[in-house]
Lab assay of single mutants.
Amino acid sequence: MIIKINGKYYKIKKIEKNPNGKYTITTENGKKYEFKNVKIFSEEELK
């Protein structure tokens, strides 16, 4: 799965839903981001 952050695309390693309704997304390079609204892309959609 792929996520778009600030115009760049990252591969997703893990998605966790937090009790506060936000999502914590861990990218393949180990960085964590927290979002309220998340749009996930499949690799097929990006081709």
Rank of each mutant, 00 (worst) to 15 (best):
N18V: 04
K11C: 06
N6I: 04
N6L: 09
T26E: 11
E34D: 07
V38K: 04
K4F: 09
N29E: 12
T26A: 01
K14F: 09
F41W: 13
E45M: 03
G21I: 00
K4G: 07
S42G: 06
K39F: 10
E16I: 10
G7S: 04
I5S: 02
K22M: 14
M1I: 09
K4C: 12
K8D: 06
K8R: 13
K22C: 12
M1C: 08
T26R: 01
K13N: 09
K17P: 06
K31F: 09
N6C: 15
K32V: 15
V38Y: 03
I5T: 01
I12L: 04
Y23P: 00
K39Q: 15
K47T: 14
E16H: 07
K22L: 14
N29W: 08
Y33C: 05
K13H: 13
Y23E: 01
K11I: 08
K22V: 14
N29S: 14
Y9T: 05
F41C: 13
I3A: 09
I3G: 02
I2K: 05
E28R: 07
T27A: 09
K39G: 11
I3R: 00
F41E: 09
K47R: 06
N18Y: 07
T27E: 01
E28K: 08
S42M: 10
K8W: 08
K36A: 14
Y10A: 06
K22R: 12
T24Q: 09
P19I: 13
F41D: 07
K14Y: 12
N20P: 04
I15C: 12
G21P: 00
E16G: 03
E34M: 10
G21C: 04
I12R: 00
K39V: 15
S42A: 10
K17A: 09
K17N: 05
T24V: 14
E16Q: 08
G7V: 01
F35D: 02
Y10F: 12
I5Y: 08
K8C: 10
M1S: 09
K36C: 14
T24G: 02
T24F: 09
P19N: 10
Y10P: 00
I2T: 07
I40Q: 05
Y23H: 03
N37D: 15
K14G: 11
I15M: 07
I2V: 15
K4N: 10
I5D: 01
K36G: 06
S42F: 13
Y23N: 01
F41H: 03
I40L: 10
T27Q: 01
K36R: 11
L46R: 03
I3H: 01
K8L: 10
K13F: 12
Y33W: 13
K36H: 12
Y23Q: 02
G7M: 04
E44M: 03
I15F: 07
T24M: 09
I12N: 00
K36N: 11
F41G: 05
I15Q: 01
I3T: 03
T27F: 15
K4Q: 14
Y9N: 05
K17F: 09
L46E: 07
N18M: 14
T24I: 13
F41L: 10
K17Y: 10
M1Y: 10
E43N: 03
L46H: 08
Y9L: 10
G30R: 01
E44R: 01
E45L: 03
N29G: 13
N37C: 15
K31V: 12
T27P: 00
N18P: 01
V38N: 04
Y9D: 05
P19Y: 07
N37A: 08
K11T: 08
K14H: 12
P19R: 10
S42H: 09
T24R: 05
K32D: 04
Y9S: 07
E44T: 04
N6Y: 11
N37P: 04
E34Q: 11
K17T: 06
I3L: 08
F41Q: 06
N18D: 09
Y9R: 04
N37E: 14
K39R: 11
I5K: 02
I15N: 00
Y33K: 02
G7D: 09
M1N: 09
E34K: 08
K36F: 12
I3Q: 01
F35T: 07
Y9V: 09
F35R: 11
N20R: 08
K47P: 11
N18Q: 12
I3D: 00
S42R: 04
E45I: 03
N20I: 03
Y33A: 02
N18L: 14
K4V: 15
K11V: 10
I12F: 03
T27Y: 03
Y33R: 02
I25C: 03
K39H: 15
K36I: 10
K31H: 12
K31L: 10
K32M: 12
N37H: 14
L46A: 05
K13E: 08
K36W: 13
E28L: 13
K22W: 15
Y23M: 05
T26D: 01
N6H: 12
K22Y: 14
G30Y: 01
I5G: 01
I40M: 07
E45F: 03
K31W: 11
I25L: 05
Y33Q: 01
F41A: 07
F35V: 15
G7A: 03
N6T: 04
T26F: 10
G30I: 00
F35Q: 04
Y10E: 11
E45P: 04
P19C: 08
Y9I: 06
I15H: 01
E16W: 10
P19M: 12
N20H: 06
K32A: 08
T26M: 07
N18I: 06
N6S: 10
K17G: 04
Y33D: 00
K17W: 08
K36D: 15
E43H: 03
Y9F: 11
K17R: 13
K8V: 13
T24E: 09
K31N: 11
N29Y: 09
N20C: 06
E45G: 06
K39M: 13
Y33N: 01
E28A: 12
N29D: 15
I5M: 09
S42Q: 14
I5C: 05
I25H: 00
K4Y: 08
K14Q: 14
G21A: 01
M1Q: 08
I2M: 15
K13Q: 14
K47Y: 04
L46G: 07
N20T: 09
N20V: 03
L46P: 06
K13W: 10
G30Q: 01
V38W: 02
I25N: 00
F35C: 09
E43S: 05
G21E: 03
P19W: 07
K17M: 13
K39E: 15
E45W: 03
N6R: 13
N20Q: 07
N37Q: 10
N18K: 11
F35L: 15
Y23A: 01
K47S: 15
Y23T: 05
K17L: 14
I5A: 06
I5N: 01
K47F: 05
K36Y: 11
E43K: 03
K31S: 09
M1T: 08
K4I: 14
